[in-house]
Design a protein around this nucleic acid. Sequence first.
RNA 1: GGUCCCAUCGUCUAGUCAGGUCAGGACACCAGGUUUUCAUCCUGGGAACAGGGGUUCGAAUCCCCUUGGGAUCACCA
Length: 584
Amino acid sequence: MVVPSYCCVCIRCVRSIGTNTRLQKQKKTGAGNMSSNVKTRFAPSPTGHLHVGGARTAIYCWAFARANEGKFLLRIEDTDQKRSSEQATAGFFEDLQWLNILWDEGPTFEKAGGGDEGPYFQAQRLPVYREQLQKLFDAGLAYYAFETQKELGEERKKAREEKRAYRYNRASLELSAEIIQQNLDEGKPHVVRFKVPEGGPLTMQDCVIGDVTVERSEVDDFVIFKGDGYPTYHFAVVVDDALMNVTHVFRGQEHLNNTFKHNLLQDALGFEHPTYAHMSLIFNPDGSKMSKRDKDKTLRKFVKENQIEKAPAGCVSDEAWATWQASKDNQLSTEDATHLSEALGVTLPEINVGDFKRAGYMPEVLLNYLCLLGWSPGNDVEQFDAAFLVENFSLDRIVKSPAKFDRAKLLAFNLDALQKLTSEEFESRLFSWCEVYAPKFAALENFALFASANHERSKTYKDSTETSHFLIEPDDEISWPESKPVKKALLKGEVTGLSRIPAIIDGLKSLEEWTNESIDACLHALADSLADGSLGKVAQPVRIAVAGGPVSPPIGDTLVLLGKESTLHRLERCHEHFASTCDV
RNA sequence: GGUCCCAUCGUCUAGUCAGGUCAGGACACCAGGUUUUCAUCCUGGGAACAGGGGUUCGAAUCCCCUUGGGAUCACCA
């Protein structure tokens, strides 16, 4: 079998740098009318949720494919039998779908999927990998290794102590054919390693970083087939990308060093090198890596600081709690973490796409913001939609340096986008969100008014419900914690707000029509007669009385939403409450 | 620790490849103003080329060193 020397011999590699600009020019000048062969892929491992870093990669893959009239492929890398789950896989489909990142090839899910180069689950491709592995055996580029993980672990530890990088020592390469056969016959656990060919320094090409070169000794004989009979990531990714005709590989920079291994494997297998684009990582504002562990860390910190000894009743089992507390390495399950955070009133950091969905962001905005973390269209353009992205996306504008995720800016973008929505769009989107995350609000009788009252003042859908919680509380459960603004509006001043309430009750009671206009007129009239025309002196006590706090939608909307009966009842209760506890 | 990557306002970035406008925008922040609360909205403001050497008439931009940050060194992907 012919083993090509590395890279630069294939057409695609020579062409790779700047491919996009060329293709785009073709497209725009109309010079190239045949559909391009560009194919990108997003290949998540279904071991958790789609997080923002992964989502950004998926968006870039998708945008690049669309920008070049190519295909976008989704492949599920589920070769880790222990950690992969169907539930996680479904979660990825849903999150991608929510962002409206649809794949042309891959597992079928609603409007996405298809293609005839599958299966697109790696766990179903064992025969394919075995066949390719045989090519390596035939070429003398693969060999069995019988060291146990424990032995290897000790070697590694030793290397660390001696302050050098660990490299596999090739001990199993020295084994005689007889010994190997004997081990195999005895069913001795084994892996298959790739034999790195002799040669000079290794150079990889990356169209965002540029060329990177390392000494060949930096790459050891890595494992390509695991003890459980499944291929490792390195082997499966190389085989699948080649067999599925992937031309451009976008991935996080944590894979940069892996690329040398992948290039070596591609050469050994006779595959072309795809074009690589390694993207910088996304960090938290404090500079730490944004990871799924952040939620666990937040909870742990809160529990420790508040010296909480056991979980609040009914949210986490004693057993799960004990395991969690036993070691920092034991993370709470997503469900338990959510329950615990709710019970403790801790806000968990948003990390996953699903977290932002739950927090009430628009998918278009998350997509927009994520794009901006590592790519910029120039010309001071920041807010754009998917169509603009597809029209303008290019590799040469991807930023090399890492970015910190700034929630304040995301929030500002979301506010802008929400405000651009028509009231009908806002209402329908808010309703869909409430159906899932705040069903009590979805059940509101006058939902249209609830939506319009909140449209202008909400940065997220969640804002709408959080500042209107009093709407779904029973009249008799409203309480009035004496915060500063509450005291100011009700108890302070020569004439207190509280003392005006009886007159306000009378005024409102006399209304025949209970509409925004009639209430408004009534309150203005009351303001004139009771407070020299200062509407705030009337409206604010009313707001506090009906809402239990100083924040609510505009007062007219608030009262219409509540209804006349509730409004009056709450005003009376509030007056009684303060009259009995205070000396007014 | 070895190897590799990265470096412009607090943050995301434009400008770097083809050296030459008081380094531009957005978010955040600060000060005013509008508003019945919160949120909006309007006006204004401060704010950066990590440091040091070169090359050049001229350096954010090209080269080198230092410093700082990050990734990686699995039978995880």
